[in-house]
């Protein structure tokens, strides 16, 4: 039972992160490989405040969102000037730079030693099994985000965003400042993913820079593509599948020495098969 809650919580955290990723990548065509770094920023911002300044959780929540939003905003200036493959490359590069910062800025992040004993929301202590309320908070957050994003995408603002994805030039000619639209999407996607990062930090209670390197960014993108770009429920599906599948492999009784590699090979196979047969992913509507 505890184990199921554990899987459910991880799936929820990643689902939230992928909602952020998909919002940027699926709906705006910004195929970014830096959301792992965003999770890291949210995680570290919240963890530092929670652990060393003892702030109440809601404050850390706001701080995580704000810090990541700020980082996304700053990053958007150089990044949004680029298109297509160059965007992908620089975004990928940012995940390395962010990793270096997490690792080297020892005064702030404690470097390779990481942060330990990060507290979670006080609410979870209401029940003996802290996981239950933690999961409940996450699910509520996911629902709110789903509802919020849905509303945004349905609005006239959302129409412009999708138009920008299809053809930026035409949208500009129609009179829209596409850059500020794309920037706002990027920032919001960062905020959402940053908050997911905070919950990750609180849940596993120890974080270190290696958690947030390019592997995480790639994983988030794969989850988004698998579930389907430009599909909100696809984000959740993709995240959950890629959390549950490796756990299933564990039960196959594979000898330990090849388990990790087998999991990775299965990721690779999924990617290739997806790209070959169904690049839109499970529920997606946007073809890259």
């Amino acid at each position: 039972m505890d184990y199921l809650l554990h899987i459910a919580i991880l799936s929820s955290i990643y689902s939230l992160a992928v909602l952020g990723q998909n919002y940027a990548s699926g709906y705006t065509g910004l195929i970014s490989i830096n959301h792992g770094a965003f999770m890291g920023i949210g995680a570290y911002a919240g963890a530092i405040l929670l652990k060393w300044y003892g702030v109440p959780f809601p404050v850390a929540f706001l701080a995580a969102g704000a810090a990541t939003g700020l980082a996304a905003w700053l990053l958007s200036f150089p990044l949004l000037k680029l298109k297509g493959d160059s965007f992908v490359l620089v975004s990928f590069g940012f995940s390395f730079i962010a990793f270096n910062l997490f690792l080297n800025w020892r005064g702030l992040t404690n470097g390779a030693l990481g942060l330990k004993a990060i507290p979670g929301p006080e609410l979870v202590n209401l029940l003996d099994n802290t996981k239950i309320i933690f999961l409940a908070i996450l699910l509520a957050l996911i629902l709110i985000t789903l509802w919020g994003l849905h509303k945004i995408l349905q609005s006239s603002y959302g129409v412009v965003i999708r138009a920008t994805r299809e053809n930026q030039k035409v949208t500009q000619i129609a009179g829209h400042c596409t850059d500020s639209y794309r920037r706002s999407v990027f920032v919001l996607s960062g905020v959402i993913t940053g908050i997911a990062g905070l919950f990750l930090a609180s849940y596993i209670s120890t974080i270190d820079p290696t958690l947030f390197n390019y592997h995480l960014s790639v994983l988030l993108l794969i989850m988004a593509i698998l579930g389907g770009l430009a599909s909100l429920k696809g984000s959740i599906a993709g995240a959950t599948l890629l959390i549950v599948l490796p756990e299933l492999l564990r039960f196959l009784g594979l000898p330990n020495s090849i388990l990790a590699e087998s999991q990775q090979i299965s990721y690779g196979l999924i990617l290739i098969l997806l790209m070959y047969y169904r690049p839109v992913g499970l529920f997606g509507t946007y073809k890259i």
């Binding site: 554990h6 990481g114 120890t206 270190d208 290696t210 564990r250 330990n256 388990l259 990790a260």
Partner: peptide, 20 residues
């Protein structure tokens, strides 16, 4: 359990050993 000299893997390994 193999933890590859890595704290994340060790945390997973411990979780598996303890929970499962």
């Amino acid at each position: 359990e193999d933890a590859i000299c890595n704290s994340q893997s060790a945390a997973s390994a411990a979780t598996k050993l303890v929970n499962i």
